[in-house]
Write a protein that binds this DNA or RNA. Structure first.
Lengths: 200, 200
DNA sequence: GTCTATAGGCAGATAGAC
DNA sequence: GTCTATCTGCCTATAGAC
């Protein structure tokens, strides 16, 4: 891939997004500044404005990339794992991986800040959750049809409960610095869905 | 109750806390300012500093009052409602009432902002969750002992799952402006705990 | 208790040189 | 692409009059 000489290392926009994403997941979108990002990358805030016209645009790009990557991870789970309950466990593990880095789900954090977000970011946040729900709904529906999962109500409702439960479990586990809080909650949340013979 | 002449209406500190609490629940602690509170009360930020030396102290007082009131509501549930599953439903209704005002649980919001909070506020946030867990654990344990509830694992783990699930459900329901998202998640979360004859 | 006035810092953003 | 310099605005906080 011939690229010219101007950038040996990773694209500057990508590195900006890396830093912004981490800061947003740890502190919140409203609690990091252009200066924070610029300092860490050893450039100036004026340079940031060259790559992203404003913080709102940076925010939008951040969510879009995060969602893309998350959906890739979901496709990967579907390709690698076939058992429905194992797929759900792998889904929960995605969250656990984020928490391990002392981060919240980016969109969970942004959901808390939702009322202060610019319109473009709001839509992107909802898009993330919609996509997660759609994927989970499909996995749940297929799993139930295959006799691997058992739940009452619609797959969509179950999917929403799972997303809410995992987001909440992350939210609470982090202040305690206790990953087992998340694991325990995730396990309880999902165990009720397995159609194993030992449920009753 | 003789009070002198200087304050006919509600205590100024209480009114300050009312406004700060609502703003914190809607926008987050980091996203409201002394000026926001002062403007709404038609006083100046200098006056605010007379009642609360700084924003951190205001924040601490806010959490303490919120926790006190929440615990009173829990005691009230325990006094009014005797069936364990009805107590859990009433607990979830507390959250629903908050959401109805387009607010998040104060401490759920602060959990998201946790890493940016001053030390005094952090402790107070954990205290809120600890107290909730302790109350729920007791309710769950009693309910199981009375044969009204059924769950595997410790009451504490179940309590943590409930708190996490309800906090997450609030977090996600609000951006969608859809209270039924909360209700549906809360119902699914709790229904698995009832020891009713129709579970299987 | 509440005010005016103001300090001192940080925010996001832009103009224009290199 | 990145810089320096700068603007405007908001933030928390304080001094001191009333």
């Amino acid at each position: 891939m011939v690229r010219g000489r101007q950038q040996r290392r990773a694209d500057t926009p990508a590195r900006i997004l890396d830093v912004a994403e981490r800061l947003a997941q740890r502190q919140g979108y409203n609690s990091f500044s252009y200066a924070d990002v610029a300092t860490e990358l050893q450039i100036t805030t004026a340079s940031l404005h060259y790559h992203f016209t404003g913080k709102a645009e940076l925010g939008r790009a951040m969510i879009r990339r995060y969602t893309e990557r998350f959906l890739e991870a979901l496709a990967d789970i579907e390709a690698r794992v076939s058992a429905a309950s194992a797929r759900l466990a792998a889904y929960a593990d995605l969250y656990a991986g984020v928490l391990r880095e002392q981060r919240l789900c980016l969109c969970g954090m942004l959901a808390a800040e939702y009322q202060t977000l610019p319109e473009g970011m709001r839509e992107a946040v909802l898009g993330f959750f919609d996509a997660n729900e759609a994927w989970l709904s499909r996995i749940l529906e297929d799993g139930r049809a295959a006799g691997q999962l058992r739940f009452t109500g619609s797959p969509q409702d179950a999917a929403r409960m799972i997303v809410a439960g995992l987001e909440g479990a992350m939210l609470l586990a982090r202040p305690y610095g206790d990953a087992t809080r998340f694991q325990s909650a995730a396990q309880q949340l999902l165990q009720g869905l397995s159609a194993g013979p030992a449920t009753e």
